[in-house]
């Protein structure tokens, strides 16, 4: 995978997306294309619409205006499970594990429902994902015995069980120590090397800078900057949005 290759059709095309809640406009005419294999950082102050945007992409919310096109197919009206089956997986800002299941069983849900038949037994696939995420020793553990970082990794592992083409990570590093942030970040970067396109929402700027090939900054539901990480960080409006004027 190379970034310089001739641009194919984008993996994800978000077109003129507008989402309002009553009188409040959470997303205002957002258009962005995500390339195949791209590591895309999404930043913005609290309440700027980052999570609303990925909710519209993953199907948890339906926009009033605009379209979401994935792999050339318009998925704007599809329910989340149909999108998961087409290869859109996500983690949640506040982890939402299946509490009555073990870590392994959490992954089995995705393997059972989102992926088509495979030659390997599902449990082997689940175990290989867990090994990859460094959670193999926790396979049989109930989710409420996991630490915060393990829970974050389990969410990513469960998303991987869907065999995603596009992985959306919603603040997977919130509340982690700096060594744990590096750990999760390394995992995400290594996933990106495997042709999984990743959208990462994050507040930790070092992480965003290190991870992203391109960064988009939202403020009050509008795109205020998009481009290379260093450019976006240097942008005056971005600095104003974060620091206030």
């Amino acid at each position: 995978m190379t970034v310089t290759a001739a641009p194919d059709a984008p993996l994800l095309q978000v077109g003129t997306l507008t989402k309002t809640f009553g009188g409040f406009t959470a997303l205002d005419n957002i258009s962005v294309d995500i390339r195949k294999g791209e590591r895309f950082g999404l930043i913005g102050p609290n309440g700027s619409g980052k999570t609303t945007l990925i909710n519209c992409i993953s199907g948890a919310l339906r926009p009033q205006v605009g379209s979401v096109v994935f792999c050339g197919e318009d998925i704007t009206q599809l329910p989340p499970h149909q999108r998961a089956r087409r290869g859109i997986a996500r983690s949640f800002q506040i982890p939402r594990p299946f509490k009555s299941m073990t870590v392994l069983e959490n992954l089995m849900v995705g393997l059972d429902f989102a992926t088509v038949g495979s030659s390997l037994p599902e449990e082997d696939i689940a175990m290989s994902i867990l090994t990859r995420m460094g959670l193999a020793s926790k396979a049989g553990a109930p989710t409420d015995t996991l630490s915060q970082v393990e829970l974050r990794k389990m969410e990513l592992a469960r998303a991987l069980a869907v065999r995603p083409k596009l992985l959306i990570s919603d603040e997977a590093m919130a509340g982690l120590s700096s060594s744990e942030v590096d750990e999760v970040l390394d995992l995400l970067i290594s996933l990106g090397e495997e042709d999984i396109t990743i959208i990462m929402i994050e507040h930790i700027m070092q992480a965003v800078m290190r991870f992203s090939e391109r960064v988009m900054c939202l403020d009050a539901g509008k795109i205020i900057a998009i481009g290379a990480p260093a450019e976006v960080m240097a942008n005056k409006r971005v600095q104003e949005a974060y620091l206030g004027t």
Binding site: G59, A89, F92, S100, M108, V109, D112, F113
Partner: peptide, 25 residues
């Protein structure tokens, strides 16, 4: 069956189940 696991998932968290591919409805 698969259905049992799907029901268990949606009982725990309906949105997470949907986003993991479970046709909850």
């Amino acid at each position: 069956s698969r259905m049992g696991r799907g029901l268990q998932a949606l009982r725990d968290d309906e949105l997470a189940a949907e986003c993991t591919g479970v046709p909850t409805l």
